[in-house]
Amino acid sequence: MTENTYSVSGMACGHCAGFVTEELERIPGVATVAVDVENGMVTVTSDSDLDIADVRAAVEEAGYELTTTPSP
C-alpha cells in the first residue's frame, strides 16, 4: 500500500470533505481517503502510486484545487 498526502484549497466543511472523498474514491486502486478540512490536507491510501493528473482531476471535479504534489 502507498500513502500520500496532498494539500487542497477551498475546503471549508464536512460536505467539502465528502465531495473530495467521493471523487478520489473513484480512482482505481484507492483504498482509503482521509480529509483534514481544518488543515486543507487529504491523505490517500492506494494499492500503488497514483497518477498526479488523476488526483488533480478528481479534486477539481469535486470543486476544489490541488495545491501541492504528494508527500509520503
Results as ranks from 00 to 15, higher is better:
57 A>M: 09
5 T>R: 12
3 E>I: 07
58 A>F: 11
24 L>P: 05
65 E>L: 02
41 M>H: 06
22 E>Y: 14
19 F>V: 04
1 M>V: 01
39 N>I: 02
39 N>P: 05
44 V>S: 02
37 V>S: 13
6 Y>S: 00
67 T>A: 06
47 D>N: 00
60 E>S: 13
4 N>I: 01
34 A>Q: 11
20 V>Y: 01
47 D>M: 02
62 A>G: 08
67 T>L: 06
23 E>W: 09
66 L>W: 13
21 T>I: 07
12 A>H: 14
48 S>V: 07
38 E>F: 14
19 F>N: 11
30 V>K: 01
4 N>P: 06
36 D>N: 14
14 G>I: 11
35 V>W: 05
44 V>N: 02
32 T>L: 08
34 A>K: 13
56 R>S: 15
21 T>E: 10
48 S>W: 00
28 P>V: 11
16 C>G: 07
58 A>C: 11
15 H>I: 08
3 E>N: 10
8 V>Y: 01
71 S>T: 08
65 E>V: 06
50 L>E: 02
48 S>I: 02
41 M>E: 09
51 D>Y: 12
3 E>W: 00
54 D>L: 07
6 Y>Q: 01
36 D>G: 09
24 L>G: 07
48 S>Q: 09
1 M>E: 02
41 M>R: 14
35 V>A: 08
63 G>D: 14
63 G>W: 03
43 T>F: 06
20 V>R: 02
40 G>N: 02
43 T>H: 09
56 R>P: 03
67 T>W: 01
36 D>A: 12
61 E>G: 09
17 A>D: 05
25 E>V: 12
46 S>R: 03
69 T>A: 15
8 V>F: 01
7 S>W: 01
29 G>T: 05
55 V>K: 06
27 I>K: 13
1 M>P: 03
30 V>C: 05
25 E>D: 15
33 V>L: 05
50 L>A: 04
27 I>V: 15
44 V>W: 03
40 G>M: 04
65 E>T: 12
71 S>K: 15
72 P>H: 04
55 V>D: 00
51 D>A: 13
32 T>H: 11
35 V>Y: 08
51 D>P: 13
34 A>M: 13
72 P>C: 07
4 N>A: 03
31 A>I: 10
18 G>R: 11
57 A>V: 04
38 E>C: 01
44 V>R: 00
59 V>I: 14
14 G>A: 15
67 T>P: 04
55 V>Q: 00
12 A>P: 04
13 C>W: 10
